[in-house]
Simulated assay, not measured.
Amino acid sequence: MAKRKKQFKTNVRSLITKFNPKSPISEQYRTIRTNIEFASVDTAMRSLLITSSGPSEGKSSTTANLAVVFAQQGKKVLLIDADLRKPTVHYTFKLDNRAGLSTVLVGEKPLEEATKETDVPNLDILTCGPIPPNPSELLGSNAMKQLIKKAQETYDMVIFDTPPVLAVTDAQILANTCDGALIVVRSEKTEYDAIQKAKELLEPAHAKLLGIVLNDVAQKKSNTYYYYGS
Rank of each mutant, 00 (worst) to 15 (best):
E113A: 11
T177Y: 00
M157P: 00
F19G: 03
K59V: 07
D170Q: 09
E57F: 06
Y192K: 14
L84K: 09
Y192C: 06
N142T: 10
D193A: 15
Y226D: 12
F38P: 12
I195D: 02
G74M: 01
L105R: 10
T10L: 15
K18M: 12
S222E: 03
L49S: 06
N11S: 11
I148G: 09
K86C: 11
Q73H: 05
S52R: 09
N65Y: 10
T92H: 12
T88V: 09
K59I: 06
T10G: 12
Y29M: 09
R4I: 07
G74I: 02
L49Q: 05
L95E: 03
Y91A: 09
D156T: 00
L105K: 12
L126R: 05
E153P: 03
Q146M: 04
P163H: 04
D156W: 00
P133M: 15
A194T: 09
L66D: 00
G180W: 03
F38T: 04
T154H: 11
L147V: 03
D42P: 01
Q146P: 02
N176F: 00
D193Q: 14
R13E: 14
D96W: 01
S26V: 03
P132D: 03
P110Q: 04
I159Y: 01
V77N: 04
R4Q: 12
N11Q: 14
I16F: 02
S230Q: 12
R46G: 04
E113V: 14
T92E: 05
Q73D: 02
T31N: 12
N176W: 03
L182S: 05
A175Y: 00
Q146S: 08
K109T: 06
V185A: 05
I148V: 13
D81I: 08
S222W: 06
T10A: 15
N11R: 13
N35C: 02
K149W: 02
G54Y: 08
N134E: 10
T169R: 08
Q7V: 13
A167V: 13
N35H: 10
T190D: 08
T34Q: 10
E203Q: 07
K59L: 02
L139S: 13
G140F: 02
L95W: 01
S136C: 06
I125C: 05
L79D: 11
P24G: 09
V168A: 01
L79F: 12
C178P: 01
Q146A: 05
L84H: 08
L174N: 00
T10M: 15
L201D: 01
D216E: 13
A181M: 11
S61G: 07
K199Y: 07
F38E: 09
R46T: 05
V185K: 00
I36V: 10
P55E: 15
V217A: 10
Y155S: 02
K5A: 14
D179Y: 12
S14D: 09
D83M: 07
A82R: 01
T51V: 07
R4E: 13
Y155F: 05
L15E: 05
G229Q: 12
L79N: 11
T92W: 01
E203R: 07
G129F: 05
C178V: 13
Y225C: 00
T31L: 08
D216P: 12
A171W: 04
G180Q: 03
